[in-house]
Amino acid sequence: MKFHLSHLQAMLLFALMISIAFGFLSRRRPLERVKYIVWSLLLFLLFGIGIGWAMYPFSR
């Protein structure tokens, strides 16, 4: 079994899994969980892509 994920795919999968786990750990009601998961996922992606762009000028 082999997986060759790109940077973006790996980040998306990681962010989604961790967001789901945190949502289920910290919230009890289904709606609150969904809100938490979506919010956490968006923040993961925002910071991930943001830090990626912040490093871009130093990459060459």
Binding site: M1, F14, I20, A21
Partner: peptide
């Protein structure tokens, strides 16, 4: 959910 999340992370991590 915890079984699935930890399982997916382990399977994908080992698969990578």
């Amino acid at each position: 959910m915890f079984f699935a999340v930890v399982g997916v992370l382990v399977i994908v991590g080992a698969g990578m």
